[in-house]
Amino acid sequence: TTIEWNGTKITVDNPQKAKELAKKIAKKLGLTVKVHGNTITIE
């Protein structure tokens, strides 16, 4: 699972952990999480 935001890509083996990490990042930055299959985008 890949997390993408602002040109940065982070690959996380565990999809559940990836989703939790994305939510934490999005919350800190005041952004939203969008899931597209194996890609999680923070916008």
Results as ranks from 00 to 15, higher is better:
Thr1Ala: 09
Thr1Glu: 06
Thr1Val: 15
Thr1Leu: 11
Thr2Ser: 06
Thr2Met: 07
Thr2Val: 13
Ile3Thr: 06
Ile3Lys: 07
Glu4Ala: 03
Glu4Arg: 06
Glu4Gln: 07
Glu4Ile: 14
Glu4Trp: 07
Glu4Pro: 02
Glu4Tyr: 09
Trp5His: 11
Trp5Pro: 07
Asn6Leu: 13
Asn6Asp: 13
Asn6Ile: 07
Asn6Tyr: 14
Asn6Pro: 15
Gly7Gln: 06
Gly7Asn: 07
Gly7Pro: 10
Thr8Gln: 13
Thr8Met: 15
Thr8Lys: 11
Thr8Glu: 09
Thr8Ser: 10
Thr8Cys: 15
Lys9His: 11
Lys9Gln: 13
Lys9Ala: 10
Lys9Phe: 13
Ile10Cys: 14
Ile10Leu: 05
Ile10Trp: 05
Thr11Gln: 09
Val12Trp: 02
Val12Lys: 01
Val12Glu: 01
Val12Cys: 15
Asp13Pro: 10
Asp13Lys: 14
Asp13Trp: 12
Asp13Arg: 14
Asp13Asn: 13
Asp13Tyr: 09
Asn14Pro: 06
Asn14His: 06
Asn14Trp: 06
Asn14Tyr: 04
Asn14Asp: 14
Pro15Lys: 09
Pro15Asp: 04
Pro15Val: 09
Pro15Ala: 10
Gln16His: 10
Gln16Leu: 11
Gln16Asn: 09
Gln16Val: 11
Lys17Asn: 07
Lys17Val: 12
Lys19Ser: 07
Lys19Leu: 15
Lys19Ala: 12
Lys19Phe: 15
Lys19Gly: 05
Glu20Asp: 09
Glu20Cys: 05
Glu20Gln: 13
Leu21Ser: 01
Leu21Val: 06
Leu21His: 02
Ala22Asp: 00
Ala22His: 00
Ala22Asn: 00
Ala22Gly: 03
Lys23Gly: 09
Lys24Ile: 13
Lys24Arg: 13
Lys24Ala: 12
Lys24Phe: 09
Lys24Trp: 13
Ile25Met: 06
Ile25Ser: 00
Ile25Gln: 00
Ile25Phe: 04
Ala26Cys: 07
Ala26Tyr: 04
Lys27Phe: 03
Lys27Asn: 12
Lys27Pro: 02
Lys28Ile: 14
Lys28Ser: 11
Lys28Gly: 08
Lys28Asn: 10
Lys28Gln: 11
Lys28Thr: 07
Lys28Leu: 14
Leu29His: 14
Leu29Met: 09
Gly30Arg: 02
Gly30Tyr: 02
Gly30Ile: 01
Gly30Gln: 04
Gly30Trp: 02
Leu31Lys: 05
Leu31Phe: 07
Leu31Asp: 03
Leu31Cys: 11
Thr32Met: 08
Thr32Ser: 11
Thr32Ala: 10
Val33Trp: 03
Val33Gly: 00
Val33Thr: 04
Val33Cys: 06
Lys34Ile: 13
Lys34Trp: 03
Lys34Val: 14
Val35Leu: 08
Val35Arg: 04
Val35Cys: 08
Val35Met: 10
Val35Gln: 08
Val35Lys: 03
His36Cys: 15
His36Tyr: 04
His36Lys: 11
His36Glu: 14
His36Pro: 00
Gly37Glu: 06
Gly37Ile: 03
Gly37Cys: 07
Gly37Lys: 04
Asn38Lys: 08
Asn38Phe: 03
Asn38Pro: 04
Asn38Arg: 08
Asn38Gly: 05
Thr39Arg: 10
Thr39Phe: 06
Ile40Asn: 00
Ile40Met: 02
Ile40Lys: 00
Ile40Tyr: 01
Ile40His: 00
Thr41Phe: 14
Thr41Asn: 04
Thr41Lys: 10
Thr41Asp: 02
Ile42Asp: 00
Ile42Gln: 00
Ile42His: 00
Ile42Cys: 04
Glu43Ile: 13
Glu43Arg: 08
Glu43Lys: 09
Glu43Gln: 11
Glu43Ala: 11
